[in-house]
Amino acid sequence: MVKQGHYAGVQSNKKRRSIRQRQTKPVANKITRQDVSEFIQGRYVLTQRGTSDLVDETMQRFLSTWLLQATSADSDVWDMKIITQQTFTHIANQVPWQFYAVIVKQWDKLSHFLIKEVPAVPVATPIKLMQQVFDIKLLISQQLAINWYLTRFNTESQLATIKTTDISQLVKSFVAADEIVWQNVAVVYSTIPFKIKTDDVTTKKWLVKLNSLQPEQV
C-alpha cells in the first residue's frame, strides 16, 4: 500500500520548518545515506506543485514508495526504469486505476525533478541515475493488465493459468496510437470494483477520492 507514512509528516508545519532549515545549510554539510529519502521528499514538497491537492498527495505517496525501492539496495547507482518497475510491482492493485493515470500525466514533471535533484543530493558519494528515459506508458499499461488479473483471480492456482499472451492482449485493449485510453481502462476495471484494504483513515479518504475520478477527469 502507498501508505500515509512520510506524506503525513511533511504536511506538518514543524516538519516543513525542519526541512527548510536543513536545505539552507551549506552543501559542504553532507547528509547520511539514511537521510537521502527524507531529503529528496523535502525538496519535492518545497519545489513541486500539482494541479490539485489530490494530485499532490498522490505524487508524494508515489515518490515515497519509489524512494523506498531506490534506497533499499544502498547503492550509488539508481536505475530509474528498474526502480519504477519495482515500485509499480510493490503498489500493484492496492490502488485504483486512477492512481496510474495520475502518474502518467505527472511523469515528465517528476522524472525531470529526479534527474535534477537526485545527483545533487549532498552525500559523500553522489548518486548516479541510469536509464533516465523509458516508456512510462508501456510500464503502466502492463501493470494495469497485471493488476486486473491479480484482482480478478484470488488464488495461486487461478493466477498460474494466466499466460503472457493474456497480459499482452489486455494491454492492447488499453492502448491506441501509443496512448493509454483511460475510458477503455475504466470499462475493463468496472468488472472488478476496487476494494479498499486499509484501516488508515487518511489513506482511505485519499483512495476514495482517487477512485471517484472519471476517465475524462484524469
Rank of each mutant, 00 (worst) to 15 (best):
T24M: 09
V36H: 01
L144F: 14
P96V: 02
V102E: 02
R43T: 02
A101M: 03
V55Q: 05
D108R: 12
S75E: 11
V77L: 11
F62P: 06
Q48I: 02
V104Y: 13
Q69A: 10
T71P: 00
K105L: 06
D35M: 05
A101K: 00
A124E: 15
I103E: 05
A124W: 09
V36W: 00
L46E: 12
F113S: 05
Q143T: 15
F153M: 12
Y44P: 01
L144R: 14
Q34W: 04
W66Y: 06
I127C: 03
Y100D: 03
F113G: 02
Q48C: 07
Q132F: 05
V36F: 02
I136E: 15
L129Y: 08
F99L: 11
Q98I: 06
F134P: 07
W148I: 14
W148F: 15
F39C: 03
H112N: 14
T51F: 13
Q23D: 10
T51D: 12
L46G: 12
I83Q: 07
V95R: 06
V121H: 01
Y100Q: 04
V121F: 03
T65E: 10
L54A: 06
L68W: 11
P96M: 05
Q86M: 15
N93V: 08
V36M: 00
I83P: 13
Y149A: 15
S52C: 00
T151K: 14
L46H: 11
W66T: 03
R43L: 03
S111L: 07
S64Y: 01
V104L: 15
E117H: 01
P119G: 05
V121E: 00
K105W: 05
M59Y: 00
E38I: 04
R43F: 00
T58L: 05
V104G: 10
L46Q: 09
T84P: 12
D56F: 04
D79E: 12
Y100H: 05
M130S: 11
V104I: 11
H90D: 10
Q142L: 11
F153T: 12
W66K: 01
N147W: 02
F88M: 08
S111Y: 02
D76H: 13
I31N: 03
A120R: 09
P119R: 06
Q86L: 12
P96T: 00
D74R: 11
S52W: 04
T151S: 11
P126I: 00
Q34N: 08
F153I: 13
W66A: 00
Q60F: 06
V55L: 03
P119K: 07
R61D: 14
L114D: 08
P119I: 03
F39Y: 04
A73C: 09
L114W: 08
E117S: 01
L114F: 07
A120N: 15
T65R: 07
D79H: 13
D135P: 01
L67D: 14
H90V: 14
S64W: 01
D35E: 13
F99V: 14
W78I: 08
V118Q: 04
